[in-house]
């Protein structure tokens, strides 16, 4: 693993890092809104994305990373499911599942209200087997109770939220061993999908993250081993 960028590195936060934003102060919208989808296309792109993941066309990390690559004006200019449509389409083109010509043909048929024909898809109802792939043993560098410093992950798609960057927390449990999102989006074979890293639950006093927080409160996140550095006692 290469060294991580320094926490709280200079530069504006990407659009998806909302948690450090003091300028987003709107009331929570739709508290009493029970509907999960408000228009037919929303349910359709939601199901298309879930199907593409289940069939192994894309991974959730690749999908998130594609949303994260949106410039701020696009990110905030799109509704939630518009981001989904953008990301699934972009990713299917980038990964060569479809070509621009396929999409144009699909558009012509959609505009003419022609129906797509079902075709068989690979079923994947269980975690993928790892047989034959050489992977290093998982190292758990930290034990429950360890004090750790939270840093950005080593890749372009890491899962360290803005609120926690650079803070010190305490490991409260080991969640298990999982692929590192930073590597999954790199699509470098075994290193991406098959190498496993320890995932820890880490807790931070809320006042360490936000000055005005209630001193009784605690913020918790899950962080992968490469995101953590040993912190002084």
């Amino acid at each position: 693993m290469q060294s991580s960028p320094p926490p709280n590195a200079a530069g504006p936060l990407p659009a998806f890092q909302l948690s450090g934003r003091h300028d987003i102060d709107d009331p929570i919208p739709g508290i009493d809104d029970a509907a999960r989808f408000h228009e037919g296309w929303e349910a359709r792109i939601f199901a298309l994305m879930r199907t593409a993941v289940a069939d192994g066309l894309i991974t959730t990390d690749e999908f998130r990373h594609t949303v994260e690559r949106l410039p701020a004006e696009s990110y905030h200019g799109m509704t939630y499911f518009e981001r989904w449509l953008h990301a699934v389409q972009q990713l299917c083109l980038e990964k060569g599942h479809i070509s621009a010509a396929d999409l144009a043909a699909g558009h012509a048929r959609a505009a003419a209200h022609a129906h797509a024909h079902p075709s068989p898809a690979a079923a994947s109802f269980a975690p993928r087997p790892e047989a034959g792939v050489q992977v290093p043993p998982v190292e758990e560098r930290f034990a429950v109770g360890a004090r750790v410093r939270l840093e950005d992950g080593p890749g372009a798609h890491h899962r360290m939220p803005a609120w926690a960057r650079g803070l010190t927390g305490v490991v409260t449990c080991v969640r298990g061993h999982f692929p590192l999102p930073d590597l999954v989006v790199d699509r470098r074979g075994a290193a991406g999908m098959h190498w496993r890293y320890a995932l820890y639950s880490v807790q931070v006093p809320a006042t360490d993250a936000f000055e005005d927080a209630d001193p009784r409160d605690v913020l918790a996140l899950d962080a992968y081993d490469p995101y953590l550095q040993e912190a002084a006692r």
Binding site: R44, L48, Q89, I98, D102, G106, A116, H117
Partner: peptide, 15 residues
């Protein structure tokens, strides 16, 4: 646009 993407993926035999 959603239908177009779905059409393209089904025509390619991907989903």
């Amino acid at each position: 646009r959603v239908a177009a993407l779905e059409n393209a993926l089904t025509a390619a035999g991907k989903v």
